[in-house]
Nucleic acid binder design. Structure first.
Lengths: 110, 110
DNA sequence: TTTATATATTGCAATATTACGATTAATATT
DNA sequence: AATATTAATCGTAATATTGCAATATATAAA
């Protein structure tokens, strides 16, 4: 049915899945990497930087913004985007707990 | 069109997206957490543990196996799954590089 | 006020994902 | 061999995602 049965999972599991889904498209990975790389607000270049149409980029930005991973400041006719470092740090805690589960494993079995 | 234009992104970006997509569903998050928790091979319980039908779990397991995150050993009529710790560690390196980009940031701008 | 520029929204087509019933395959048990 | 058990596969319906053309919105500049 294409619909995740979120009610049968914990909040933590659903939240991890939501974040991961945001990272689940190379365009959004590329957008985030570019925002980190230039280390200042990006006003506009993203459409040139990534090779997708303007509405497509706008949609990806919207998703990332909705999750709180990026911020957008209106600056004249353009909008300047940058990483929301506070929320990024919080997100990292959540993901790190999940990714570092292997550290608790004493012995493998197979 | 529902199709990611992978050719316009780097291998690294595409690989991060692929892994993230695997974590982008709470059932797969739950499956992995369970495998870590019990710390041995799971033979069968997964369908009872998670509340989804057997073919659905089987499909999720297939995806995780395809990515190399889990291994499955045939054991009689049942199949025993566990985390592939080597590949998990490799995957963590990839994801850590991505997640820890904020450590390189000197100053925020907004 | 008109025009230019930049971004967001809408609508839609193509493709992907999720879920599960029905079935199949493979091995164990009797 | 016949039957039971377990997991994989197939087929299909429902929903989600991706991408973009067309359009709308909002501000700046002339």
């Amino acid at each position: 049915m294409g619909l995740a049965k979120t009610e049968m999972f914990t909040d933590q599991q659903n939240e991890i899945a939501l974040i991961a889904k945001a990272f689940g498209h190379p365009a959004r990975v590329a957008i985030l990497q570019h925002l980190f790389k230039i280390n200042t607000c990006v006003c506009g270049d993203l459409v040139n930087e990534i090779g997708l149409a303007q509405p497509t980029i706008s949609q990806h930005l919207k998703e990332l913004k909705l999750l709180g991973l990026i911020k957008g400041n209106v600056e004249g006719t353009s909008v300047c985007y940058c990483i929301d470092t506070d929320n990024w740090a919080k997100m990292k805690n959540l993901m790190s707990d999940f990714l570092n589960q292997d550290l608790d494993l004493k012995e493998g079995c197979c």
